[in-house]
Amino acid sequence: MYQIIVFFILIILPNRMFSQIKTSELLPENMNGWEMSDTARLYSGEEIFDYMDGAGEIYRTYNFQNLTVQRYACPSQEEILVEIFDMGSARNAYGVSTYMHGRGTGVSIGQNGEYKLGLLTFWKDKYFVCVQIEKENTEASRTVFDIGKSISNAIPSKGAIPEIIGLLPKNKIEEKSIRYFFRYEILNIHYFVADKNILNLNDSTDGVLVKLKNDKSTILFIGYPDKEQTDSAYDSFIAHYMPDSKGKGIVETENKKWTACVKEQNYLLINFDSPTKEQAVITIDTFKRRLQ
């Protein structure tokens, strides 16, 4: 009897509940007089390079799955270009959104919505979305926002922000400067540390780079899956970056500023370019207390 009931429930419930939403289903057919001007194009894996050249590496580094591109046209108006990146997980989508976050004005569309010079970006769940026009005008900009809202509403759930972000002391950091990553190639784009992976970053680690409000120094905060990996990364960093610290984890660097590094539980905390030794110790301590 139980099997029969389950069978009927499966028949009655909409297919959508059992299959993943197709990205193209998130797109509105039209908006404020703009219509889809072509069929949506899908780029998977390395095909992303056909669409955006080497810049596709950034998405690939965040484990990009596929990209849906849709253009909208309206007579005598700007073409609107929509790109929806399926990043496979909220973690990846959040990460790629931080890659370029903080340069525009915040808007309440999706998660971390931002608008600048005709480009609206946001992330939600596993998606990172860009809606853009080349030249701004009131009507086209309004439609960019409306398309963005429509896509955001079509994505049923929000994505969880990586836990490590919640460990940052919000009152001490410039939130717009947060960059989240798990590969050293991305770290080096934002802040060059070394030409090799001396911090043992990989898909199972959580990396955050952020600027401090008070002294504009930089914090690199990395979470590792276990103590063994944390210890190994700490030893590697000390050996390669500050061998002259004699194991103390703090050193004056060649630009007359200070770099300090500590490990705490499964985390590594590094403060680059602190103005003084004392300030570096205070900064590290502030972050460390959040972990205890």
């Binding site: 060059f192 540390v193 070394a194 001396i198 390669h240 970056y241 500050m242 060649e254 630009n255």
Partner: peptide, 24 residues
């Protein structure tokens, strides 16, 4: 062992602003 170039190598050699042109 492969020589690893760090940010400090550039600070030592040229100053922070030119980390850039020669890394790697």
């Amino acid at each position: 062992m492969t020589h690893i170039i760090t940010r400090r190598d550039f600070l030592r050699k040229t100053g922070a602003a030119t980390i850039i042109a020669a890394a790697g």
